Simulated scan of single mutants.
Amino acid sequence: MIITIDGAAGTGKTTVGKFIANKINYKFLDSGKIYRAYTFKMIQKEIFNNEDIIKELNNTEIKYSYINEQEVLELDGQNVSKHLHNNLVDEHVSNISKIPEIRTMMTDIQRKIVSNNFIVVGRDIGTVVLPDADLKIFLKASIEERARRRFNERKDESLEEIENSIRNRDHIDSTRKTAPLKIPDEAKIIDTENKNIDEVSYQIIKLVK
């Protein structure tokens, strides 16, 4: 079985997806980390022009694995897993992710990674990357709730700054021309507002069984 979990930033996709994968012994892919890895490379090389960002795809190798319940992402032979969540990557990832050529390449990479018994989380997984998945989930929560979660994880920004960042990310993700964030056909919609990881996860596990 292949399970997709889509939703906006901060809805709990990665936390819930990884929890379920470990519980039912599935493999796990956080598709956003592939985009973040490429964004990290563009920041390191100071490439911010769309044409040059696209050209650099030809010089890039991305490998993803899930070993001992841990994600390992290699970029051009180097493990960059610890460098994917910082303010600079957060600032640039949406604009790089919305480039059609980038999305096409990343979609191809994701499809090659996924096999049977996989949980994949992202923003266009059930709609574009794996539209024929066996079970599609869409998580939602208010901006205020999502901002509080991010603030509790990373207190290097104010709550107001995080809320503004999420609003901006939501706008970019839902209005981009290629693979916008939307609810997949036949998806089960789960509101994660005021729910903990266990509550949301076991609600999904019941659907698997």
Rank of each mutant, 00 (worst) to 15 (best):
E161L: 07
T175L: 10
V93G: 00
R148P: 00
K112P: 09
L57N: 06
V72M: 07
N95V: 00
S165K: 14
G32A: 04
V129K: 06
D30K: 02
S174F: 09
R154N: 15
D108W: 00
E46D: 15
L135K: 07
K63C: 09
I67R: 03
R154Q: 14
N59V: 00
K33I: 15
D76H: 05
L159V: 04
M105Q: 15
T107G: 14
E144R: 10
Q78H: 13
N116A: 11
E144I: 13
I34R: 01
L73T: 10
T107I: 11
H92V: 00
I166V: 05
L88C: 10
E51L: 12
R169T: 09
I137A: 08
N86K: 06
T175C: 08
V128D: 13
E91S: 12
K63T: 13
T175M: 09
H171S: 14
L139A: 10
E74K: 13
R103P: 09
P100N: 10
K27L: 13
I166W: 04
K63L: 13
R150A: 08
F151N: 09
H92G: 00
M106P: 02
A133S: 13
D134I: 03
E161P: 05
M42G: 05
S142G: 10
E101V: 04
F118S: 10
L73F: 04
R36Y: 03
S81G: 05
N117I: 05
I162H: 02
K98V: 10
P131Q: 04
Q44S: 14
K140W: 04
R154G: 11
R154T: 15
I137M: 10
S94L: 01
N164Q: 13
R149P: 11
R36I: 03
S174P: 10
F118W: 13
A147M: 07
E61N: 12
F28A: 05
K140I: 15
I62T: 01
E157Q: 15
E145T: 12
F48W: 08
I96R: 00
K140R: 09
K55T: 10
V72T: 12
V120A: 10
V120H: 01
E91L: 11
Y38L: 03
G122W: 08
N86T: 09
S174I: 07
E91H: 12
V72Y: 12
N68L: 02
V128R: 04
L29M: 12
V129G: 03
D124F: 09
D30M: 04
M105Y: 15
F118Q: 06
L135C: 05
E91P: 01
N59K: 11
K82D: 15
R36W: 08
R36N: 04
I43W: 04
K140M: 14
E153Q: 15
E161C: 05
Q44G: 14
